[in-house]
């Protein structure tokens, strides 16, 4: 959802950082996208490529690091991994879960020259 707008945000963040570091161009952009974040990875790749044209990051490699959705299972009293919201605990099948991670989207770092 809104991958185009997210790509625009990424462009802003990347360009600002690149300029602040006197970069001539950006060769790599690394994003961290949690599996529970509302982002479709392929759409993000497409949007990124389109949106970076004309920027310092045009042609930059895009690396997307997918992070697991993590949650706390209240019955198991343990941290578990879930693939999607609404999935049960893999160990005990309960839905009494509290999501603890994997729902964020971040620009991690960039490689500049």
């Amino acid at each position: 959802m809104h991958e185009m707008a997210l790509a625009e945000s990424v462009r802003e963040i990347v360009e600002e950082t690149a300029r602040a570091n006197d970069a001539r161009r950006v060769s790599l952009v690394r994003l961290e996208i949690g599996r529970l974040a509302q982002v479709e990875i392929e759409a993000m790749r497409f949007a990124f490529e389109v949106v970076q044209r004309g920027s310092l990051a045009e042609g930059a490699r895009l690396e997307i690091v997918e992070t697991d959705g993590t949650a706390w299972c209240m019955l198991c009293s343990a941290a578990i991994v879930i693939g999607r919201r609404g999935d049960p605990c893999p160990a005990c099948q309960s839905f009494q879960l509290q999501v603890t991670g994997g729902d964020r989207m971040r620009v991690m770092d960039i490689e500049i020259e």
Binding site: E12, N21, M105, R106, M108, D109, I112, E113
Partner: peptide
Amino acid sequence: MSQTRLVQIERDILAK
């Protein structure tokens, strides 16, 4: 000589 540098950002995309 061009140098590649890794610049850490770690910023939320929805920060705005």
